[in-house]
C-alpha cells in the first residue's frame, strides 16, 4: 500500500532522516519507535508532504508528491501531536471539516450521508453530548478526540497518527487504541503511528520501524523489531528488564 524508499530529510546541513526505507501493507499497523530526536515525527511530516525530502514515497504505486491534495486526503488522514485553536469553533464544526475532501460541487447539497458520517464519528469518540461546545472550553484529551473524530469523518484508507494518545488519560488512551484496532478491521485499511510507549507498540502494532538519530535500525514484524537486543542498543539500557521491573510493581 505505502512504500517509502531512501527517505532523506535535511534542515540546512543537519540530516534529520538519512536514507530510511520501509513498506506498509493493508491491515498492518506500523509503529514507529525510537528515542527523542530519532526522526519519528519527521517520517510522518515527509510522508504527509509537510516538509521537503529526497527519496520516493508511493501510495498504491503512485508518487504521493503528485497526488492532488483532496485526492490524497480521501486516502490518507493525519492526527497531529498538538492543536492550538484561537477561535471558538464548535466540536461539530471541526469534525465536519473532515468531509472537506469529499465535498461535491459548489451548488450540490452534501446530503444525508455526510450528516451520518459526522454523527457516527462523534458517537464512536464519545463527543456527541458536547458537539455544540466551543473547542476553547475542552480539555486536552477532548480536543485530541475531536481531531480523532475529524479523521474518522474523513474516511481514509490509511491513518497516520503522531503520538495519538499524547494528551489522553488512561481511559481514553485505551479507548483510542481500541477504536483504531476496530477501525483497522475493515478490509483495505492500514495505520502508521508514532508512539513513545513501547508497551503500546508491542500490544497493538503488527509491524514496527525502529529509528535512532535519523537512521533506520530495524523494520518488519513487531516481535522481531521490538526484540530486547534492538531496543537496548538504541536506548542504551536493558529495556526488557526495566519494563519487567515496572510491571512487578503491579503484581501484588
Amino acid at each position: 500500500m505505502l512504500n517509502v524508499d531512501s527517505l532523506t530529510v535535511s534542515y540546512g546541513p543537519l540530516k534529520i532522516l538519512d536514507n530510511v526505507s520501509f513498506e506498509l501493507q493493508k491491515q498492518q499497523w506500523l509503529m514507529i519507535v525510537g528515542p527523542n530526536g530519532a526522526g519519528k515525527s519527521t517520517v510522518i511530516k515527509a510522508v504527509t508532504q509537510c516538509v521537503p525530502y529526497s527519496g520516493k514515497v508511493t501510495l498504491d504505486g503512485k508518487d504521493i508528491a503528485h497526488i492532488r491534495p483532496h485526492a490524497l486526503a480521501r486516502s490518507v488522514a493525519v492526527l497531529s501531536q498538538n492543536y492550538h485553536i484561537g477561535y471558538a469553533f464548535t466540536v461539530e464544526e471541526i469534525v465536519s471539516l473532515g468531509r472537506y475532501a469529499w465535498k461535491k460541487g459548489l451548488f450540490a447539497k452534501d446530503g444525508e450521508d455526510i450528516d451520518d458520517r459526522i454523527d457516527h464519528a462523534l458517537e464512536i469518540t464519545g463527543l456527541k453530548k458536547i458537539r455544540h461546545q466551543s473547542v476553547l472550553t475542552l480539555s486536552g484529551g477532548e480536543l485530541q478526540r475531536t481531531f480523532l473524530a475529524q479523521i474518522f469523518a474523513q474516511d481514509p484508507r490509511l491513518l497516520i497518527l503522531d503520538e495519538p494518545t499524547n494528551h489522553l488519560d488512561l481511559v481514553y488512551q485505551k479507548q483510542t487504541f481500541e477504536l483504531i484496532s476496530e477501525w483497522l478491521k475493515q478490509p483495505g485499511r492500514a495505520v502508521i503511528s508514532v508512539v513513545h510507549d513501547l508497551s503500546l507498540a508491542k500490544a497493538y502494532g503488527s509491524h514496527a520501524l525502529l529509528l535512532n538519530e535519523g537512521h533506520h535500525i530495524a523494520s518488519g514484524n513487531s516481535e522481531q523489531v521490538l526484540a530486547n537486543d534492538n531496543l537496548s542498543k538504541v536506548y542504551n539500557m536493558d529495556v526488557q528488564l526495566w519494563m519487567q521491573q515496572l510491571l512487578a510493581n503491579w503484581q501484588n
Binding site: H70, Y83, H84, I94, L97, A101
Partner: peptide, 18 residues
C-alpha cells in the same frame, strides 16, 4: 478559511490545496 483558522497543517491534511 475555516480550515486555515484551525491550523495550516490541519488544512493540508484534510485536503486543502494550501
Amino acid at each position: 478559511l475555516n480550515a486555515f483558522a484551525i491550523g495550516e497543517e490541519n488544512a493540508r491534511h484534510i485536503g486543502v490545496n494550501v
